[in-house]
């Protein structure tokens, strides 16, 4: 009896193995399917996603000033640029830059005075301070990245220009972000 109890190989090895393999494979599928809800619950929830777009009245932002609004938990810079700031940015369109971009590509046509950017340094996520740095754009206090008046990276460790959010003008001085 002892021999039979511990016997591990009998006749028809293939059919037996198939059942064990099928059971274990099914178990693996089950585990994989169970893991998904536990990962998916970490994605943004319904109420978070619902707040993903905001409408902002920008009529009170005077030239040379910027408005900072909170969008998706991050600051968005709405900068009303002076003609001099626009000219400075356009002049440098073809300068040697880490992340080349023209000034026109960073604003909406006919709305060149409005520069709307996500106010998060592309280096490690700090919020650059307004109107400081060598180019009069922004200067990031954390590690010294310098952005110009089009939000392009000019000096320092940041790899990319300040990001543009999805936005559109819903009126002359009304903008919908997201």
């Amino acid at each position: 009896m002892a021999e039979t109890a511990h016997e591990t190989h009998g006749e028809e090895p293939h059919r037996r193995d198939f059942i064990h393999i099928a059971a274990m494979a099914t178990g693996a599928v089950g585990v994989a399917a169970t893991v998904w809800p536990f990962i998916d619950q970490m994605n943004p929830s319904g109420d978070t996603l619902a707040l993903a777009s905001i409408e902002q009245d920008i009529s009170k932002v005077t030239p040379g000033q910027q408005l900072v609004v909170l969008w998706r938990g991050k600051p968005v810079f709405v900068r009303h640029r002076t003609p001099a700031e626009i000219a400075a940015a356009v002049k440098d369109d073809h300068a040697d830059m880490r992340d080349p971009a023209t000034d026109a590509s960073r604003t909406k046509p006919g709305k060149q005075e409005w520069l709307i950017l996500i106010g998060v340094c592309t280096h490690l996520g700090c919020v650059p301070s307004f109107g400081t740095g060598d180019y009069g754009g922004w200067f990031c206090p954390c590690h010294g990245s310098v952005y110009d008046t089009a939000g392009r990276i000019r000096k320092g460790p940041a790899p990319k220009n300040l990001e543009l959010p999805d936005y559109e003008f819903t009126g002359p001085t009304k903008v919908k972000i997201g």
Binding site: P37, Q41, S45, T48
Partner: peptide
């Protein structure tokens, strides 16, 4: 209720 309504698969968990 937020878990039940808005969190992905929150009702199930």
């Amino acid at each position: 209720e937020h878990i039940m309504r808005d969190v992905n698969h929150g009702w199930m968990i």
